[in-house]
């Protein structure tokens, strides 16, 4: 709760100060949120990479094996 009253004649400066403080608070909140979200994003990207690599490089189903055959040999994945 602010008990600061705008001095007469300085209304503009006070408003600007309030605006800036609000802006800083918003920025801080955004930064905290971005940090959390970015970790989730990083984990998500890593999980997606794992899933793609497993499907393309390691899945033993014969359809996957036949279609990925040359690529697996060329990249030296141990596939059969």
């Amino acid at each position: 709760m602010r008990n600061e009253t705008p001095p007469v004649g300085c209304d503009g400066a006070w408003r600007l100060k309030m605006k800036n403080e609000a802006k800083v608070a918003t920025l801080n909140a955004t930064a905290a949120q971005t940090t959390d979200m970015s970790l989730v994003g990083i984990l998500g990207a890593a999980a997606l990479g794992m899933a793609l690599l497993f499907a393309a490089g390691f899945a033993q189903a014969s359809v996957m094996h036949d279609t990925a055959h040359d690529q697996r040999h060329a990249m030296a994945f141990p596939c059969h």
Binding site: A45, L48, G49, L52, L53, A56, Q71, R72, A74, M75
Partner: peptide, 15 residues
């Protein structure tokens, strides 16, 4: 098919 799997694998490595 080899090309398609190359794209998948390199997207995974890029991730």
């Amino acid at each position: 098919m080899t090309m398609a799997f190359n794209i998948i694998v390199f997207c995974a490595f890029a991730l």
